[in-house]
């Protein structure tokens, strides 16, 4: 093995990393924004309100991300309406197709995580809101959402890591993200082990940063639970 190729192509790998980070950051932020209303609609007792988000989550959780990417990238261009619409400049770009697919996918998962967190809040705390005469909006804004945010963090951190790994699929629609760039370099140098190892290490490093950030946020957000909120079997 000759790791000098890694050194030589390091700037290229960094370029790919930058594209990957953009993909992840944009889709996680957009997905998170869409997830909240989807989760709130999903909780509704009215089937007319909860039906659509249910179907949405069902579809995006039940089909492979790769299929979703292909559907947006190859599918959208099949329609003349799309090709002639003002959206075409966006839908023609593989980067934006990936963003759209990732955002739809991660918003479905995140909505489900939010829903679980909101429903995990003890009934008594909700009743405590009712008896002081809070309106629904006050209840969500002051108690339920801040509480859900603390509960959601571990699962949400996990979802971001999954998104990070899923972002490698962007390389299948010609995007030169970290994986795409690695494949391009390998096509030129025939050093798959060295370059893929390097790419793997970079993915790991990004994961570590994400995990570390979430650990800090969790610590801060859940400080009210006391120093040892979860009892492990050996503590007994």
């Amino acid at each position: 093995m000759d790791f000098s190729v890694v050194v030589e192509y390091f700037p290229k790998l960094m370029q790919g990393t930058w594209v990957s980070l953009q993909l992840i950051a944009l889709s996680v932020v957009l997905g998170g924004i869409f997830a909240l209303p989807i989760a709130l609609a999903r909780i509704s007792k009215n089937p007319l309100v909860s039906g659509l988000p249910f179907a949405y989550i069902f579809f995006f959780r039940g089909t492979p991300l790769l299929v979703q990417i292909f559907l947006v990238y190859y599918g959208a261009s099949q329609f003349e309406v799309v090709r002639e619409s003002f959206l075409w400049p966006i839908l023609r770009e593989p980067f934006w197709c990936a963003i759209i697919a990732f955002t739809l996918n991660t918003s479905a998962y995140t909505a489900e995580i939010f829903r679980g967190a909101i429903q995990a809040i003890p009934v008594g705390e909700v009743e405590a809101c009712k008896v002081v005469g809070m309106t629904k909006v006050q209840m969500y804004r002051r108690i339920l959402l801040p509480r859900a945010f603390g509960i959601v963090l571990p699962a949400y951190g996990n979802e971001i890591i999954l998104m990070l790994k899923g972002s490698a699929l962007a390389s299948t629609i010609t995007i030169l993200d970290l994986t795409g760039m690695a494949r391009t370099i390998i096509a030129r140098t025939y050093t798959p082990i060295e370059i893929f190892l390097a790419a793997g290490v970079i993915y790991l490093a990004i994961s570590m940063v994400v995990i570390a950030i979430f650990k800090q946020v969790e610590k801060r957000q859940n400080r009210y639970l006391g120093p040892n909120p979860v009892k492990l079997p050996d503590d007994v």
Binding site: G124, E127, A128, V131, G133, R147, Y224
Partner: peptide
């Protein structure tokens, strides 16, 4: 809602909001 604001309720299991301090719970 108006009636509930004037009728207090104390629960068996307290039901304080755990993410708020004591003072914040009372002031809410």
């Amino acid at each position: 809602t108006r009636m509930r604001q004037q009728v207090g309720f104390v629960f068996q299991s307290f039901n304080l909001w755990p993410h708020m301090t004591i003072l914040e719970n009372v002031m809410e």
